[in-house]
Design a protein around this nucleic acid. Structure first.
Lengths: 215, 215
DNA sequence: GTATCATATACCGTATACGATCTGAAGCTT
DNA sequence: AAGCTTCAGATCGTATACGGTATATGATAC
């Protein structure tokens, strides 16, 4: 059992990312570093390191001497993010299925179960568990850079789901697809996985498109 | 003329990245923050922010309370990086050609000219100018996330070129290909661009493969 | 009343300072 | 002799402090 030691800035990345994804941070004003640091009970130094990382992730943008701003949502970015996922995620997920160990299988099953529970309870943070499920499916692909890119794209895409789709209760259809996908993934059916993941992302993008034109 | 203001950490990202790409930093020992900061005439704070960014780029890795390590090279990573570029760069470059303005054209031409000069003089940092040329070709695609991913992949791939190919003086053939590519790009010939970029990256990967098995 | 300038305030960015953790060597125990 | 413990030096990570820049407020000229 190896315990995981994380320094403050590492933990703040997750914390601040969740805040941004939850929509709690306005994109109009710069993030007040002193205030946020004080609220979280830390100093600015680790917070700024976390924000620098989040800028590389594409969630915030910095302007010199003006601070960090949450990047605004846009229809173009939504399209770009989903098209990138379509290009990379189906193949990575299929490859991961071929390389997955028993432990990976167990983890994927478990992740989907918790996602189901959270969805039933309409609990907050469904998006995070949705991400965790998809991540569990492509992570074992053994290609670290691809994984990191996909993780980043998932974070970016989640913002759009939360804003435009989550309020509509679109969860049920997605859950259906999740179970089919997991079945194919456990069976290591690469062809089917590719098709299903592609369709899954594409449908979400279509839903988003409809919502986005309604602005 | 709008002047560009960059804070220290921003500038340090480029500076430290170049150091790593030049191979001047060992991957065996952690980067000594106090020493490097003192050498560069700054404090650790902006240096650590830069290192945090470089970790997101994939150039370094941090271990809590042990510091930042340059990520070691590996044949698998090389393959992964080049395969990702093949998946994304041809299409992005073609799209950029369609959207390129006159200013973009001028910039691309100028970039290739300087690359030619530097190559003739066998000056140091050919890799950086090579990157700049390819960047000039895909940047106008108007897809910021794709651009940032490709820039990152270029940085990662440059390490392998510098270590394995640059010593061999492989530059001439690449230059030939660059000129053909620029011609097609200026003519907005999307099909040809896709083919050429794909072939260009693929050939480099092939060269790399041959070198990597010779280890 | 509008525009321009001066001043004050708030905030960002970085240097300095300090506590926490790791590493290696010496000493002790078995 | 091998292994465990202790301690010191070095290095990382973070809090505090401060200078510099941007923004807001009020004053002055027109």
């Amino acid at each position: 059992m190896s315990l995981i030691i994380r320094n403050l800035s590492d933990q703040l990345v997750d914390l601040v990312r969740d805040r941004i994804l939850s929509g709690a941070v306005s994109s109009d004003h710069a993030i007040r570093q002193d205030a946020l640091a004080a609220e979280l009970g830390v100093s600015k130094i680790p917070l700024r390191e976390a924000l620098a990382r989040l800028e590389e992730e594409g969630l915030v943008r910095s302007q010199a001497n003006r601070g960090f701003f949450v990047r605004p949502l846009s229809a173009e970015e939504a399209r770009e993010v989903y098209e990138l996922r379509i290009k990379l995620e189906p193949e990575a997920t299929a490859l991961a299925a071929l390389r997955a160990t028993e432990a990976d299988h167990a983890h994927a099953i478990e992740t989907l179960e918790t996602l189901d529970h959270v969805t039933d309870e309409h609990g907050d943070g469904v998006g995070a568990f949705n991400r965790a499920f998809h991540r569990a499916l492509f992570r074992p692909c053994g290609q670290p850079i691809t994984v990191s890119i996909l993780e980043r794209l998932q974070v970016l895409s989640e913002r759009y789901v939360r804003v435009h789709l989550e309020p509509l209760g679109r969860d049920e259809r997605a859950n259906e697809e999740h179970h089919q996908l997991l079945e194919a993934w456990l069976a290591r059916d690469a062809g089917k996985i590719t098709t299903l993941v592609d369709a899954h992302i594409r449908k979400t993008l279509d839903d988003l498109r409809q919502q986005l034109v309604d602005d």
